[in-house]
Design a protein around this nucleic acid. Sequence first.
DNA 1: GCAAAAGTGTTTCTACTACACCCATGG
DNA 2: CCATGGGTGTAGTAGAAACACTTTTGC
Lengths: 237, 237
Amino acid sequence: MNAESIYYPFVSVDCVVFGFDGERLKVLLIERNIKESDELYNDKKLPGSIILKDEDLDDAAIRILNELTGLKNIYLSQFHSFGSPERTKNPRDILWLEKTMKLKIERIVTVGYVALIKINRKIQVLSDNTETNWYDLKEVKKTRLAFDHEEIIQKGLEHIRYKLDREPGLFFELLPRKFTISQLRTLHDTMHQVRSDIRNFHKKVAQMPYVVALDEVEKNVPHRAARLYKFDRKKLW
Amino acid sequence: MNAESIYYPFVSVDCVVFGFDGERLKVLLIERNIKESDELYNDKKLPGSIILKDEDLDDAAIRILNELTGLKNIYLSQFHSFGSPERTKNPRDILWLEKTMKLKIERIVTVGYVALIKINRKIQVLSDNTETNWYDLKEVKKTRLAFDHEEIIQKGLEHIRYKLDREPGLFFELLPRKFTISQLRTLHDTMHQVRSDIRNFHKKVAQMPYVVALDEVEKNVPHRAARLYKFDRKKLW
DNA sequence: GCAAAAGTGTTTCTACTACACCCATGG
DNA sequence: CCATGGGTGTAGTAGAAACACTTTTGC
């Protein structure tokens, strides 16, 4: 460690925001439009930002999500940092960085966070006039993404699968406040990439004291209405 | 994201290097001596370094370990990044940074890696005349450490426990090439914080095709000599 | 021959798997 | 009355846990 070898990269935080619409897992992505002479590039990026002076990494992630959605108290978990010099070598990304940051960029080390949010919460985009939308996780592979954001999403997904194993309460960050067993099952199965048995799944849920049945059923369904449940955090342990 | 809010911290990599002496889990720490007027501070730090220009995070960790031990092909796994502005506020650490880096430091964002090495491999300290030693993990709590290195060690330990669950081959990164079942059991039990049953443990090992018995036993033990085993990576899957 | 750790089987319990039919509702 | 998904119980299996005595070696 000596002074001449020292190198100052930028440090940013990127958030992989997951949502669940009752059928599929979704990710929140921001539209990115880049004009260069005649050509117009169009792709998507993860919500993220360079960290501010005196701002902790976790705080940067909280700020990004709040600016983007207006929400607070979102579940957040750091999972991996990405610092390859190659990650800022794509011409589209260089162009975009020069336009938005007004600075030549050498390298950005980014810290990845996973966030879980209830998809039905109305997201008020407070930040600049960029378009933010939910995308099917399956579609993402076919979508052109900024930087190494595809890899970041992939690693984020692996991380949240691991977290869900150890903290079953996290499932309920993705479900509406009142949910049916089959919503929970679809979510569970999507996350664990399995097809679980319905009866066994009911049994399992019955053994979770923190999933409590309500005296209420679904409305406006063209078949027998399913019972609604809620998550009771107090009964978690 | 606009230019005036941009902030350039240093980025470093710190390695939590674990070893196992047959009885206890050890961490590799570097002696740090700081002279300030009359006072002499003395504490320990994790091996680490600021990243170099055009150096990926993983490569920085590989370099740090190679400079420290002379070894290559060490198991490495990134686990968490630490970026609180508070982490570079301790006067001892500020003093040390100014002396070794010859620069005023505002903040260092550090990326934590876990490394596993066989403790019997002779470590040739190639780096400057600092003293590097193995310390009992239990002792570490009582030892004065630089920065937030105690927290980093703690998080690194949790991480490696998780990794060992999913990749049982990693246990053998810590054991000598020839080992006994009871060494493996002690390691396993230490890592998982349990006291496993000897007979059940033997059964478990018998079901691991990648742990193969040798025609050889321990020498110079004041009791019945234990059979030696080796790890056969080819039979892992 | 004794101290110290190595090595070895059986039974019990628990958790996971597989599997098929009737029910309620809307159209 | 029919199409659609909701809801329920039992039997089998495989893996984990509990448990105690004999063996080998050095001193």
